[in-house]
Design a binder for these strands. Structure first.
Length: 915
DNA sequence: GCAAGGTC
């Protein structure tokens, strides 16, 4: 009996193990159920279809646009129940709280700090309720939103809604590049965590767009309505980070045309006519702006007017078929070729998409996935009376061979027809036809021709003419929107001599660029990252509806009085609101948030906070203490320009970034390291400051100084208030905003034992190369940078490390012979004489022999021995950048050319292109 | 009454 029981027990155990191993037991009693949510219904349907191998069953959700699909799938080794549904883009919207929502109950300025909250708009309530209802019966949530920045944020909106409805939810992110069988199954087997950083970046983008957009819109609307009541009553004068740069492009082109100076030019033209065939030869010099010079060449040619054929080249020439169609290209081509505006094009495309005639029209992809059955799509078109024959020809001649682009949004294929129809009308019909013809053209072959180029010589002047014979039209047969014309030319042979029919001087005038078309505007927006492919048309429409711009001849954009006034008004205030780089700066900040290098709060603070530029400074080596006694609370926003000059901060750059206060640029090379040296390590935020400040430098970088001032940057960043608490006692932060670590030099040289600060992460681990000698070590260490200071240098009045290095070199160089004295480029110097009126007139000095654009900052008086430190008197500066030593005498001079008659702001050397 | 980004 006992044996029987043991046998039975053993058998039961084996059965149990088998069931557990096969997960039958687990499934029976605790089958895992997941809610899967995609960004749109279409995606949910297709993903469900792939994951279920076509077996998913559908049912209605509370929202009629967002259905629910059910199926079984294996998730992490377990067979699970799957429920799949979707949202429709963003589920939540951002809005101001309470009284901040209405215009009359708060100041526009208060919107920068006003409380905001996320809520679900009325038209999305049903989607939200579906999620809440479905998730209650699930143990897991899988996010299937598009794998881009906005998609990640929409994912977190879904997560927030679902977590509020159901606790203890396991949450995963499916990452996929396209909705294909392979891709979505791979995503399910490699589930990840949602990326909070990416979502944070979108939150920042949303908040900034709302705050800045609403604040400026209300401010300028109310202000301008008050100033121009008769003209602007009931008119919204909106501001947006995309609509304003779009307006800026229109204004900029208009100004370029207005400011264009017409010039007359002259050129030679050779004609050779035989039996009604006239061939024009173009001059190799193209055109000259000097009539007299052109006449001389004309005389030379006409003195011996025989042409000799130097070369006859015949080569095949192709005209490329179009790339697979992406949204921006569809908008541009429809505007150019069909004269349908971008906004209408997208509305039409949306309609064609929902009727199933074309694929998803918002795509940045211009290459077809390999697994797409293009032949089947081409086959659908063979019955059409206009392009059916061509479609059949593609199939008969080896099938579709699409030209492939290089762009992919990893989500949608290029725009293509998905179903044949001949029941459309109006612009809907025209747009469908364009999409079909573009698709067939893309699947066809390039047009082929033979080009002949003939080069001739007349009196040593060269001319050329070309002809073209088209041999195969190929895609041009179906793509009726492009033309390629043959050009007949006589038969020439190398060495042939002929008499031209005429050799003429023709004059012409240069012409300004043309006004922007919609296609041009879209190209500019795309180039500068203004808006997305889905929103370009809306921004253009917006500036039209606001009367900022209008269309001339129904084609060309011209700024209206209001648009022009806004741009010029802000420009006059030094606020570059209509320039694209403001948006570009935000995009750069968002990227840093995504990469985890920047806190969202810091970006919000920088872009949104009041424009404080007050900092507390302390000076090392008494540098400028006699003028600005430490601790000095100074402004770098332009309110104290003298102070900026002493720090060699380029005021123009400060103004340029006044909206974000992220960066100022130093105006000369030697001073690019200035700021971090004279200022002691204790960089303490003043009471006026809400944020601590990090000051770094470009120490150690080899930057050609005069080439690009913007490169000589000394970064001054506002960090988040929360970082303040993390700072160590020294308040030294590195350039990646981390508290710097204090280390001791172990190198066996004169710096042994000296202390210095470094980035805690280290450059080798992705940190920065921040370096600063500790205050207690600075008088003993080589210098605040790399070069050892001598005792004499310690007593100099220079505020800059670089000037000290110059002094050091001066001491070691020879005694006035140009062959002995070498500059910082290690090249022999040239000896120069001061011509400027002043105490040093006639005095000689050494400077770099290179030209202005590449010379270094080396300076040395010719009549002084090398043992003395840097110049004690106001110095003539050998190049843009030297001569900080002269500050002591309080004689102000230009930091670029040394003149005492102006400062660097008005220096003609510094600003050759604008002065 | 405001933005820009999703999508229907």
């Amino acid at each position: 009996m006992l044996q029987c029981l043991e046998k039975l027990n053993s058998r039961l155990n084996r059965t149990l193990c088998f069931l557990v191993n096969k997960q039958i037991f687990v499934n029976k009693y605790s089958t895992m159920k997941y809610l899967n949510v995609a960004e749109k219904n279409d995606a949910a349907k297709n993903i469900a279809s792939h994951l279920s191998k076509g077996t998913s069953t559908g049912r209605k959700g509370l929202s009629k646009y967002n259905k629910i699909y059910q199926f079984k799938a294996n998730v992490m080794g377990q067979d699970c129940e799957m429920v799949m549904t979707s949202v429709s883009g963003h589920l939540l919207a951002l809005e101001f709280s309470g009284t901040y929502r209405t215009w009359q109950t708060c100041s526009p300025l208060s919107l920068f700090d006003a409380p905001v909250f996320k809520y679900c708009p009325e038209n999305y309530q049903k989607i939200k309720m579906t999620l809440e209802r479905e998730v209650r019966s699930c143990q897991g949530l899988i996010i299937w939103t598009d794998c881009d920045r906005e998609g990640e944020n929409i994912g977190f909106e879904i997560i927030d809604v679902c977590k509020a409805a159901r606790t203890n939810l396991k949450i995963y992110r499916a990452k996929f590049s396209e909705i294909t069988l392979v891709s979505v199954n791979r995503a399910l087997q490699n589930l990840e965590e949602p990326n909070k950083n990416t979502s944070n970046a979108v939150d920042v983008r949303q908040e900034l767009d709302l705050r800045i957009g609403a604040a400026f819109t209300r401010f300028q609307t109310l202000r301008l309505q008050k100033v121009f009541p008769s003209k602007l009553t009931d008119t919204i004068v909106s501001y947006g980070s995309c609509q304003f740069p779009t307006l800026g492009f229109v204004v900029e082109r208009y100004r370029a045309i207005e400011n264009f100076i017409v010039e007359t030019f002259w050129k030679l033209k050779v004609n050779h006519t035989i039996e009604n065939l006239s061939v024009e030869f173009a001059w190799e010099r193209f055109r000259l702006f000097d009539e007299y010079a052109c006449k001389i060449f004309h005389d030379i040619c006409t003195e011996n007017p025989l042409a000799r054929v130097l070369e006859v080249k015949t080569k095949p020439k192709s005209k490329w078929r179009p790339l697979p169609l992406e949204t921006v290209e569809l908008e541009k081509q429809a505007s150019r070729k069909l004269k349908i505006h971008a906004k209408e094009t997208m509305q039409l495309a949306e309609k064609l998409y929902t009727q199933g005639f074309i694929s998803y029209p918002r795509t940045e992809t211009n290459e077809f996935p390999k697994e797409m059955n293009l032949a089947q799509l081409v086959g659908q078109q063979t019955g059409d009376p206009n392009w059916g024959t061509f479609a059949q020809k593609i199939l008969d001649n080896g099938g579709p061979t699409p030209r492939q682009g290089k762009k992919s949004d990893k989500a949608h294929p290029p725009i293509h027809p998905t179903k044949y129809t001949n029941n459309l009308s109006g612009n809907e019909k025209r747009l469908y036809e364009f999409i079909v013809r573009s698709f067939l053209a893309c699947c066809s072959k390039d047009a082929q021709g033979q080009e002949t180029i003939v080069n001739i010589d007349i009196g040593r002047e060269k001319f050329s003419a070309n002809g073209l014979v088209i041999t195969e039209l190929n895609y041009l047969e179906v793509y009726i929107y492009e033309k390629w014309s043959s050009k007949e030319i006589h038969v020439y042979q190398e060495g042939q001599i002929f008499s031209p029919t005429s050799i003429d001087i023709v004059s012409g005038t240069t012409s300004p660029p043309s006004l922007l078309t919609e296609a041009d505007l879209i190209s500019l927006m795309e180039k500068h990252g203004i808006g997305t492919d889905a929103t370009h048309a809306e921004h253009i429409e917006k500036i039209k509806s606001r009367s900022y711009v209008a269309l001339a001849d129904e084609k060309y954009f011209v700024p209206g009085v209001l648009g022009m006034g806004l741009v010029e008004g802000y420009d006059a205030m030094g606020l570059e609101m209509s320039k694209p780089h403001l948006r570009a700066q935000l995009e750069s900040d968002l990227k840093e948030i995504i990469e985890g290098r920047k806190q969202p709060e810091a970006v919000l603070s920088e872009q949104c906070g009041p424009d404080y530029k007050m900092m507390k400074f302390e000076w090392r080596n008494n540098s400028i203490s006699h003028i600005y006694a430490p601790p000095y609370t100074g402004c770098i926003g332009g309110c104290d320009r003298t102070f900026l000059e002493y720090l060699n901060i380029n005021i123009n750059s400060v103004i340029k970034t006044s909206g974000s206060s992220a960066q100022v640029t130093s105006s000369n090379t030697s001073s690019r390291t200035d700021i971090s040296v004279p200022i002691q390590n204790h960089i303490i935020p003043s009471n006026a400051l809400r944020n601590p400040i990090e000051i770094g430098s470009n120490r150690g970088r080899d930057i050609p100084a005069q080439r690009n001032n913007a490169m000589n940057t000394t970064n001054i960043r506002m960090n988040s208030a929360s970082n303040a608490a993390n700072l160590d006692d020294n308040h030294v932060v590195c350039r990646c905003s981390k508290p710097a670590i204090l280390l001791t030099s172990k190198k066996q040289n004169q710096n042994f034992g000296q202390k210095f600060y470094k980035c805690p992460v280290g450059k080798e681990n992705g940190g920065c190369d921040f370096f600063l000698w500790a205050p207690e070590s600075v008088n003993n260490a080589q210098s605040a940078f790399e070069t050892p200071p001598s005792s004499s240098e310690q007593t100099t009045f220079n505020t800059t490390g670089v000037a000290r290095r110059d002094a050091n070199r001066n001491r070691n160089t020879g005694s006035g012979n140009t062959d002995d004295v070498k500059c910082d480029c290690r090249l022999p110097c040239k000896k120069l004489t001061v011509h400027k009126e002043g105490p040093n007139k006639g005095r000689q000095f050494y400077g770099c022999a290179k030209d202005l654009s590449s010379k270094c900052n080396f300076f040395k008086w010719a009549d002084e021995s090398g043992s003395r430190p840097g110049p004690a008197r106001p110095a003539p500066v050998s190049s843009r950048g030297g001569g900080r030593a002269s500050r002591r005498g309080a004689v102000r001079h230009c930091s670029f050319c040394g003149s005492t008659e102006h400062d660097f702001r008005t220096c003609s050397i510094r600003r050759p292109s604008t002065d």
